[in-house]
Design a protein around this nucleic acid. Structure first.
Lengths: 121, 121
DNA sequence: TATTGACTTGGAGCCCACTCCAAGTTGTAA
DNA sequence: TTACAACTTGGAGTGGGCTCCAAGTCAATA
């Protein structure tokens, strides 16, 4: 798959794909004789994972470390697992923070309704 | 309350408090004869709201618009309510995105466990 | 009265995650 | 063979949200 196809399929700009590669998130992308990238299925799976983690706010640098561990082989499995567990913990905190904000908003929105005329803060 | 006290109480740096003020999030902070800020209870409540919304990812600029509407008076109540409803909607989306990432992580972490030896990606 | 510490200001700098740009190469189509 | 579209590179620029800095003011204390 060429970069423009991948870009369309995963809704990531071409620049972002190259940026991710430079940042170590997509190592070993194959290139043909004239230097053009050819993304494999494995690369694409990785992109899905990256998208998922990025959308949840995992920093590029941490993702890069995780992927570097993947490339190092099986010996790093435990470390990787710990990274995922840590990340899950952080996401749960983040989700709960957001939930508290939603609750607070519900409360505020209710007040606007309660005053019915919509005229009171 | 002086800025250093507010800073400690709400765990926001003094620079951040002044930055928020400059950005329109904290209008009309009283100053004494020698120009020193004196935060009122209302200011403090506003700071709590700002912290809550910021921690949920609401951009400073949008907060600034919301607060500008507050200052304009009762006529803007409906618009403000709509902003809060919109914000709630976005937070719910964000929360759900994070939840999906958590689910994906659970799945991945499970795989590490399943392979028991911790040796397989 | 000299020092100290907390405050003031405007503006520069930093980090992250892109995003854009210039200049060049390649492959196909007219 | 010339035009074009899509690709390549390195590096500069951008926007949001702070964070830091220099230079100055002020009030209380030694």
């Amino acid at each position: 798959m060429k970069i423009s196809e991948v870009s369309k399929k995963y809704e990531l700009s071409i620049d972002t794909l190259r940026y991710y590669e430079k940042a170590g998130l997509l190592p070993n992308i194959k290139k043909n004789s004239s230097g053009i990238r050819d993304y494999s299925d494995t690369d694409c799976e990785r992109i899905e994972f990256i998208k998922c983690m990025r959308s949840a706010g995992m920093p590029v640098e941490r993702l890069s470390r995780y992927i570097a561990l993947c490339m190092q082989g099986d010996d790093t499995a435990e470390e990787r697992r710990n990274m995922l567990i840590q990340q899950r913990k952080e996401l749960i905190e983040k989700r709960d923070t957001i939930q508290r904000s939603i609750d607070k908003l519900d409360y505020k929105i209710d007040i606007y309704y309660a005053h019915n005329t919509l005229k009171v803060k």
